[in-house]
Design a protein around this nucleic acid. Sequence first.
DNA 1: TAAATTACTTTGACAGGCAGAGTAATATTT
DNA 2: AAATATTACTCTGCCTGTCAAAGTAATTTA
Lengths: 109, 109
Amino acid sequence: MVRSDIIRGHLDSIILRLISEKDRYGYEISQEISLRTNNRFQIKEATLYAVFQRLEKKEIIEAYYGDVSHGGKRKYYRITSLGKAYLNELVKEWSEVKEIIDLFMEGFE
Amino acid sequence: MVRSDIIRGHLDSIILRLISEKDRYGYEISQEISLRTNNRFQIKEATLYAVFQRLEKKEIIEAYYGDVSHGGKRKYYRITSLGKAYLNELVKEWSEVKEIIDLFMEGFE
DNA sequence: TAAATTACTTTGACAGGCAGAGTAATATTT
DNA sequence: AAATATTACTCTGCCTGTCAAAGTAATTTA
């Protein structure tokens, strides 16, 4: 299980990337992250909804209520065009971050 | 220039890695990071010295004063054996983090 | 000798992430 | 039918890492 403070800062990217595939609601995203990472990483509820608030405020995503549910009312998020551009930047940034950290980490041992 | 909140959490790794090569002092590390990343990343002074304090408290590094300097008195840091083990973990963790984030980021566009 | 550079320290603020507690609706079990 | 589990979202208050800003001090260069 990866520490969450090491993923910190990349949550926007992960969540946006999932929403960019298709509109999704919070609980679904949480499950999807656990599934795809094989439980090596789990996002905490409080964190997830904080990310939504942040991204919505910046108009990177927008919300609407779904009609069906198997529990509490689902709030779906879709990515805006601003969000798409932002995600694009984040993806580029990620490859730069990898390069930079690898500069130091590679060739160890 | 990479945002520092995206590097956040990896500073311990970067700094420890540099100290593990040889004993180093703060100002030197700061210069070395700028140099190796070609100024794509610069560590802020306040941050650097906060990292030292944190790592020293956890006995991951230890300090001693150097004799020569070209300015203020140099405080050198060396990595402890505990620190070596810790760095080992961090390096492993980094490759896991890369894998996980790539799970989401790859195949975009 | 004044200014620039090298070198370290401290304080207070901010932002992201989290534990914990709570609300609500639907599904399952008893 | 009632109790319990699951699905689904929200809010408050705390913790930690990073940083801007300001300061101290010694050495080098102009």
